[in-house]
């Protein structure tokens, strides 16, 4: 199938975020959120083109949201992501979808948040912010999480695996002194990932917040970076073999398990 989406549209929210908008009226908004050390598109490698060429994504707007992981705390990025998702409810009005593309305003029935590693903590916190702000759209959100760091992560392996190229030396030289890494420390309970989990537990205990239960969790067998165990009411994880913390979100072709699993929940 040929692509049914616009060219890569620069989105002035986050860092180097890009959007691909369906030429047909879309039912679904899919937002990809990368993890520590990633970037809007690079983290996902072939995901963009593979999903854009899939029939199931034909009526979906697809956005790759980026943020600078070495700047600020996870909470800062989560708050910015929440703001962005709020604006996404009327992308044309809010200049996310440029008027020059000559496409109509969108009304999404579903919002699928696809996150890798640290991105899972950001997505969960953004949902909680939307719930607190009584945003109705939060009930339309669903999550698909790849190697999520929502139970914390092992800092040094994460920094060395996730930062691309020469950038990973910055971690060593700075002795990993970046607030966002401290936010993810699996051995520290006074961090955002733990606060998010506690808040989510409270919601789920009250029988609320169905959106906090991930529809899809994909783990990489032998992942040395994250603490991989069941997260509250999420669907049990699908474990992919012969991959790693970073490669689990980098499918090489349309037959890759990560693509098949994502398609299964659309």
């Amino acid at each position: 199938m040929a692509t049914n989406h616009t060219t890569s549209i620069a989105i002035r929210h986050g860092s180097n975020s890009q959007g691909f908008f369906s030429y047909d009226p879309p039912d679904v908004l899919v937002v990809f959120v990368h993890g520590f050390g990633g970037n809007a598109l690079g983290t996902w490698t072939n995901f963009p083109s593979l999903v854009l060429l899939e029939e199931k994504f034909k009526h979906a707007d697809v956005i790759f949201y980026g943020y600078e992981t070495l700047k600020g705390q996870a909470g800062d990025h989560a708050a910015m992501l929440y703001d962005f998702l709020d604006l996404c409810q009327s992308p044309l009005k809010n200049n996310i979808l440029p008027r020059e593309q000559n496409l109509p305003e969108r009304t999404y029935k579903r919002i699928l948040l696809v996150a890798h590693s640290l991105g899972a903590v950001l997505v969960r916190q953004a949902q909680l912010l939307a719930f607190t702000a009584k945003k109705k759209w939060v009930d339309k959100t669903e999550m698909a999480l790849f190697a999520p760091a929502h139970n914390g992560a092992n800092i040094v392996p994460l920094a060395m695996a996730a930062l691309p190229g020469l950038y990973s030396l910055i971690g060593v030289i700075a002795k990993f002194r970046f607030p966002i890494l401290i936010d993810l420390d699996a051995d520290n309970s006074n961090t955002i990932w733990n606060a998010v989990k506690t808040e989510t537990q409270k919601l789920q205990d009250k029988g609320k917040g169905n959106f906090t239960k991930a529809k899809l969790v994909v783990s990489a067998m032998g992942d040395k970076v994250i603490r991989s165990y069941q997260y509250l009411g999420d669907e049990p994880a699908k474990v992919v073999t012969n991959t790693s913390h970073m490669k689990v979100c980098k499918p090489l072709d349309a037959a890759h398990e990560s693509i098949t699993l994502l398609k299964s929940i659309l």
Binding site: T7, S8, Q18, G42, T45, S49
Partner: peptide, 8 residues
């Protein structure tokens, strides 16, 4: 895909 990554 390479075109999109190149643009980004």
């Amino acid at each position: 895909s390479p075109l999109n990554v190149f643009i980004a």
